[in-house]
Design a protein around this nucleic acid. Structure first.
Lengths: 216, 216
DNA sequence: AAAATTATTTTGGTCTGCCAAAAATAATAA
DNA sequence: TTATTATTTTTGGCAGACCAAAATAATTTT
């Protein structure tokens, strides 16, 4: 199996199982990887032989501890690259994901280590997602959706649930980024939208938007 | 054809034809790419269909102008990455080639442009090889081998003919790098070795070595 | 519980990049 | 100009990553 294929599967299984080693369905994998389920069946069988996943037919797939380890390493590389691209090379947070998707496969731990050092071994990437260290350790941050916030309180934007370029560009238009403070002025219970104050300006945010903003 | 395969062929043809559009033999390509000649036959036929090479059977292969253009772009990416890795991330000149070999395939002109800007759009990479600009232009430097130098003269190391890690590490041991001045004290006509002064120390360099040192 | 839906696996194929061995073509030496 | 040798091409095959369609299995609906 090609290393790149393996890495993409592991990473995707990892994300679908939400970091924990939950069972992932064949179809979900197929959708995420843009292949048909039959292809996934083949692939997970091979991953099973490589002892990277547990797999029982018609049941589902789950990472082994070895698989998790490798997955975390890929996640680390991806997020280090994202942060590096944003911080050192001035890419927008809506651009870095796609590039990191390619760069994460470069096989050099030394390179990743140097990149990490250059940006000060950060714990979070530009989207507020935690970066595992060399040993795969990271603390899962306690975020909640802005949608669940209380009127009158002020929050700090700490992450986004939607990583799409469209959403991120939308946030850019209001100069919102990780660290921006958002005050909830009013919640419209008709449509769930929120009147907020961001960067000293009043902004109304739709339920769609506030559901994808993670705050502290 | 996979983009990566195409790029590797174009780059290799380019180097084998020494930058000019000389005809390259099938076997030479096979050797460089670590495949058998039969594989090359297949590949160049496909490259021909893509109008990237001229190809007549049992004659040889030569880049078309389109092919040269693409080849120069790959060479550019490779050398930008080499320089970036050395300059910004502190890699040794013996390490950068291998890494650049992977990084050159990342498909983002914007990335290369940013990297280049960061290192000041240099005209030469850490080995003294010229970096083509976005349009593929570069001036071929007028180097000569130190082996052909005259006794008593002082030269500036401007390039290396051998890019192997072994050779580069050897040079590191004597702190020789691009820009180092080398004074030729004496030429031993028994074995062609040279007595030189490098970094204020007397060093005897074998014919092997001085044949691979390019100087001005 | 039977029918209908959805998910998974199997089966048979394609395409790409590769190899081995044989056949055809140079190119070189005698 | 024959032999000999080297190179190139052809042919038949293989593995990886995919897909389409058919066959199974599991899940939901009714």
């Amino acid at each position: 199996m090609h290393q790149q294929t393996i890495e993409n599967y592991l990473k995707t299984i990892y994300h679908l199982s939400d970091g924990n080693s939950f069972v992932v369905t064949n179809k979900d994998l197929a959708d995420r990887l843009h292949v048909i389920p039959a292809t996934v069946t083949e692939a997970v069988k091979k991953l099973h032989q490589l002892k990277l996943v547990e797999y029982e037919k018609s049941y589902g797939t789950r990472l082994t501890s070895q698989g998790i380890k490798q997955a975390l390493n890929i996640v680390r590389r991806h997020r280090i690259w994202e942060t590096y691209l944003a911080q050192e090379l001035g890419f927008g947070w809506d651009e870095v994901h796609e590039l990191a998707e390619e760069l994460e496969h470069i096989k050099s731990d030394k390179l990743v280590q140097k990149l990490a050092k250059k940006i000060g071994n950060p714990a979070y990437d530009p989207h507020g997602d935690p970066i595992p260290d060399e040993k795969g350790r990271f603390q899962k941050p306690e975020f909640k959706k802005l949608a669940d916030a209380k009127v009158g309180r002020t929050y700090t934007l700490s992450g986004v649930a939607d990583h799409s370029a469209a959403f991120l560009k939308f946030l850019d238009r209001y100069k919102m980024k990780i660290g921006t403070t958002i005050k909830v002025v009013e919640i419209e219970n008709f449509d769930g939208s929120m009147l907020t104050v961001c960067n000293s300006k009043e902004v109304r945010l739709s339920l769609q938007v506030v559901s994808n903003l993670l705050v502290r």
